[in-house]
Amino acid sequence: MSGGLSRAALRAAGFAVLIMIFAGPMFFMLSASFMSRYEVNITPPALMPSEFHPENYAEAWERMNFVHYLRNSLLSTFITIAGQLLVCVPCAYAFAKKQFRFKKTLYCLVLFDLIVPAQAIFLQMYILESGLGWINTMRGLTAPFFYSAFTIFSLVQYFKTIPDEILDAARLDRCSDVQVIARIMAPMASPIIITAMIFTFVYKWNDYFWTSILTTDETVRTLPMAIQNLMPVDHAAREWHVIMAGNVMALAPMLAVYILANRAIKSGLIYGSGGRRAVSGKSV
């Protein structure tokens, strides 16, 4: 009896430790975002604001020029998602369901991105985009990422499981490939397509690496760069209460998606088991 009780206590302690380590800092960010300038700089540190200062958010909003960066974040993320749907879905359909010459070789080529890390080619990307005049443009920030080896790979794996008979029936009805994709493939594979696009959303929304490489001014910069603008180089001048408020605002859309799509994100990991590659690969 007491053995069962102490096991339950141990388990409860385990949950408490995990939640404290992983949610603690997030809670602390939220808490500090409501503190006064004085309260974020005291010892011992305050865990909760003694009085609420929602005006930190107004200040962060204004100093970050929040609307400008939010617009860029939304635009670049949704353009990338739309582009991937147009480029990756037909490509994955062809590799999963069509027979053609050089198919294997071409598939290996398409998966190239999974092997070479983005971190090795960013300088050449910059040189290439300067040549095209794409630096500081929305197309420079999105078009290269319409192609994603990670997205194509996970779609192909799933498309292969859809029975050929269904597609044959459509072909007998003289449907074109585009019609087959739009009317049969996409609806039947919608769980994996949604999951893949959620991954694209997460990585594009959070992307700092490519934005810092492919932009030199504020025209198309996104929210992660706006946070940087709240951080003065001078360490003593950092106003953590405003910075944390900015952080919370930049995170909010992401967290909302996470809460709404919790299940899809988790099951996506089970299909793909390759989310990490998407982080290191160019595929955003």
């Binding site: 480029v87 490509c91 080529l109 192609y147």
Partner: peptide
Amino acid sequence: SPYALILPAIALCLIFSVAPTAMS
């Protein structure tokens, strides 16, 4: 033909992944 379906992806891959790697 099936090549039309894969052409955009292949083109982007060659321009933005293979070429920068080769240039590196």
